[in-house]
Nucleic acid binder design. Structure first.
Length: 838
DNA sequence: AGCACGCCGACT
DNA sequence: GTCGGCGTGCTC
């Protein structure tokens, strides 16, 4: 009786860092155990080996023969990404209709490059003569000696044996070679020494030279001898040729530079050696240092690199022993107060979990928020017997990898970071904290376009960890969760109402309307100007928030109203006065300012819509001699004098908020608030309100005056600030409005973008899609559009948008399934939970 | 994302 | 005849 054939092991689903779905790979020969979920593997890919991540099990009877995964890089007991995290991310990628590789490429920031030694040999008795040129023999050889695609061809036939060993991070250093190993030729030197017996044929001068040499000892050069003896070079040469002196090789003392390196080395480079030695009185140039190494006095060697220095934890500021009054539910929120207060309230909970040996993950949308969280929480980890690490783009690759290992070993249990921290191998996570959950910085602009709080929620749920939203003001979406609310910091808000200029009795109503902007002062109102002068007089600091970079939003011909537009996009070109250029802020296209209007030939241009350059220029006129700094994507002035406390004004875009506030900040001016409202997005007013709240809490202790210039002085997002209403007043009202309109959190949205180079093709494909949705039973409430994108042409392509609005996730999933029914005649991209545009 | 393949228009 | 534009398809 023959034993029943064991069922073939199920293949592994592996993602690589490319925008493609997970592919199946056969289990490597001889691998024992279940699928190593979350481990990195080396897989054959287009003739090379690439790092992939095991995210699941595939179909055991696949349609075609599979390639084998070649090597498992991580110990399955300690995967690179926790298995629950893998499940959470995979679930999100599936629901968002995104190729898994695209999602993992965005989320996993550490580990796609693995350092390993790779040795190969031919299997015993294999005949590789069919392969070209140089092929592996039966001796182990470094794989680098062969073309990767040749190795892959041999591998595919099962004729290759491979061995992988992890190679720790190394660095190259210069170290002094032991004296015994220095080549003898380098340890001797040729010198000129007087002959033992002086020939009788020497002239008197020659004899005199030889006598000097005998007395003063051997010389290294002829010229040294000549100079020392005070005799011409010709005579000493003749004396040498006549046999009065001879070249001999003698033992030389080791060079001083070598002795120095033996005492102070090893060092990172020849330059470091040269600088270090020179600084201590041993003259050495990098070139000479290199020559010494060439002669065998020093070697460059690979040594294991020490672990990189990680950010130091801050002092413990919050008291973890205070009572913990935060909700115990699976999802909760904490908003209001100042950042330091919020972390103080959060500390008892985080401290308790860390003390229990559990893990806490904190997701920050930007660098400034990350820094505040680090200041508020990192000291806590030390106090609770563990340590905190950061995983963020501001750290080096080596630092991120080291932090990753500390988490994987369980040595660190608090991780604070960007989206890259979400997949970190944190042990037993009990709490995932999403900071400033309404921030647009959580939305990845390219690739997967993931909204990180959505992914964080999936990961928390997969780990059965609690999820907390913490920030200055909640998103309307977080309002329904149970939560704790702190009173907002006091704000002194002054509103400049451009729409209602003060009564001017001496002028008639008509002229008042005609001149109202001029009368109130534009782009800097008289009110704002007055406060700015006070700032100057008192030597304080001010920040002005401009709605855009550049000089102006556009140029307009005063005669015919013509405005220069981008040749690739359907937008007006921004005017940059400093570079004398018109620039497209969508695609980067730029051109010199045209001499005359293309349309009517007029030579005049008028700027409209002030930007940072314009505002800075106005401030310069207003406050002569007062330092004016600028901070936007185009120009980042050095603000260190301000941070040292010197007086001045900074004009910038929202980029300002990602830095520290100046210490003597007395005034924050929003030069034109309406820019935050004049966007076609249902989240615009929430974003505006959050901006005001963030400005009010920006300075950690002060409450600077907030001057807001606007045409919509009665906007509720601003009114609640003026009236000093509580933290939840506006977000709760917004949430009620969303309910009435059927927007999140009372609906799930997805944007479907259809793009093509031909606008008619894009429009037709979008319409076809809409028809398909309706054909599948979608209602008119559920499918909105298609409509051309707000920017009808972008980088030369014409995007059309279609919106799906479903009551809940399940219905959205049902609707999205229509996309899989067939292929479409244009590029179709889905963005679930889109932000911006609608 | 890359990198093939393949189909059309502009040149020696 | 070829060179080279970029549209389409594939990667286990």
């Amino acid at each position: 009786m023959t034993p029943a054939a064991a069922p073939p092991p199920r293949p592994w689903q592996v993602v690589v860092n490319l925008p493609v779905p997970a592919y199946d790979f056969a289990v490597p020969h001889g691998f024992v155990g279940g699928p190593p979920l979350g481990c990195r593997v080396l897989v054959p890919w287009r003739g090379e080996l690439v790092v992939g991540l095991v995210v699941g099990e595939g179909d055991p009877r696949g349609g075609h023969r599979l390639r084998e995964a070649v090597h498992v890089l991580d110990d399955p007991a300690c995967p690179w990404v926790p298995a629950a995290t893998v499940a959470g991310v995979q679930g999100w990628a599936h629901d968002a209709r995104l190729p898994a590789g695209l999602v993992w490429g965005d989320l996993l920031g550490v580990g796609w490059q693995a350092a390993y030694a790779h040795m190969v040999r031919a299997v015993e008795g294999a005949d590789l003569s069919a392969f070209a040129r140089k092929v592996p023999t039966e001796r182990w050889t470094d794989a680098g000696a062969f073309a990767p695609n040749l190795l892959d061809a041999i591998r595919e036939q099962g004729l290759l044996e491979e061995r992988f060993t992890a190679r720790p991070r190394t660095k190259t250093v210069v170290e002094a070679r032991p004296l015994d190993d220095v080549p003898p030729a380098s340890r001797t030197v040729t010198v000129i020494q007087a002959a033992a017996q002086r020939p009788t044929t020497l002239t008197p001068k020659q004899a005199q030279a030889c006598a000097w040499l005998a007395e003063h000892g051997p010389q290294e050069t002829l010229s040294g001898w000549a100079k020392g003896a005070g005799i011409s070079a010709g005579v000493v040469t003749a004396a040498l040729n006549a046999g009065g002196a001879e070249y001999v090789r003698v033992q030389a003392p080791p060079p001083e530079a070598w002795t120095w390196l033996r005492e102070h080395g090893p060092l990172d480079s020849y330059a470091a050696w040269a600088n270090g030695a020179s600084a201590q009185g041993v003259p050495l140039s990098p070139t000479v240092a290199g020559t010494l190494a060439l002669r065998g006095w020093a070697d460059t060697v690979e040594v294991p690199a020490p672990p990189p220095a990680l950010p130091e934890p801050c002092a413990l500021v919050a008291d973890p022993t205070l009572p913990d009054r935060l909700p115990e539910e699976a999802v909760w929120r904490l908003h209001g107060g100042r950042a330091a207060t919020r972390f103080g309230v959060l500390a008892p909970r985080v401290g308790r979990l860390l003390s229990q040996g559990r893990g806490v993950l904190v997701l920050a949308p930007d660098h400034a928020t990350l820094r505040r969280a680090w200041e508020g929480l990192s000291g806590l980890a030390e106090a609770c017997g563990t340590r905190a690490v950061q995983i963020a783009g501001t750290l080096s690759e080596a630092q991120r990898e080291h932090s990753w290992h500390l988490l994987g070993m369980g040595a660190a249990r608090l991780v604070i970071g960007s989206g890259h921290a979400l997949s970190a191998p944190l042990h037993d996570p009990a709490l995932v904290v999403v900071l400033e959950e309404a921030s647009d910085a959580h939305k990845l602009l390219s690739g997967s376009r993931a909204f990180l709080p959505d992914v964080a929620a999936r990961i928390a749920s997969a780990h059965d960890a609690a999820l907390a939203y913490v920030g200055a003001a909640p998103a309307a979406e977080s309002v329904p969760w149970p939560g704790a609310v702190l009173p907002p910091p006091k704000a002194r808000v002054h509103v400049v109402d451009y729409a209602n200029p003060p009564e001017q009795p001496e002028l008639g109503p008509l002229s008042s309307v005609q001149h109202k902007q001029g009368d109130m002062g534009y782009p800097i109102s008289h009110d704002l100007a007055r406060v700015l002068r006070q700032v100057q007089e008192r030597g304080r600091q001010a920040v002005l928030l401009a709605p855009r970079r550049g000089y102006s939003a556009l140029l307009r011909c005063p005669t015919c109203e013509h405005t220069p537009h981008c040749r690739n996009c359907d937008v007006a070109l921004r005017f940059h006065q400093e570079t004398r250029q018109l620039t497209c802020h969508q695609c980067g296209y730029h051109e010199a300012i045209p001499d005359r209007c293309d349309n009517c030939g007029d030579r005049m241009w008028k700027a409209r819509g002030p930007g940072t350059e314009w505002i800075a220029q106005e401030v310069g006129k207003l406050l002569p001699g007062f330092p004016v700094y600028r901070l936007d994507k185009d120009r980042q002035d050095d603000l260190s004098p301000l941070h040292a406390g010197e007086p001045g004004v900074v004009v910038g875009t929202q980029l300002l908020l990602s830095g520290e506030p100046p210490p003597n900040l007395a005034l924050v001016g929003v030069t034109l608030a309406d820019t935050w409202l004049n966007v076609s997005d249902f989240r615009a007013s929430e974003r505006y309100h959050r901006l005001l709240r963030q400005l009010a809490e920006w300075h950690p202790t002060r409450a600077p005056m907030l001057v807001v210039q606007t045409f919509q002085a009665d906007h509720p997002a601003l009114r609640v600030m003026v009236e000093g209403r509580d933290t939840l007043a506006y977000p709760a009202a917004e949430e009620r409005a969303r309910k009435a309109l059927g927007y999140p959190p009372h609906a799930r949205l997805a944007q479907i973008e259809v793009t093509a180079r031909d606008p008619r093709k894009a429009q037709a494909a979008a319409q076809e899609l809409a028809d398909a949705f309706h054909g599948a039973g979608a209602t008119a409430q559920e499918v909105l559009g298609p409509a051309p994108s707000p920017v009808a042409r972008l980088r030369g392509v014409y995007p059309y948008h279609l919106f799906l609005r479903a009551r809940h996730d399940a219905r959205l999933g049902e609707l999205l399934r229509v996309l899989d029914t067939r292929t479409w005649k244009a590029r179709v991209r889905v963005d679930v939970n889109p932000r911006g545009g609608l």
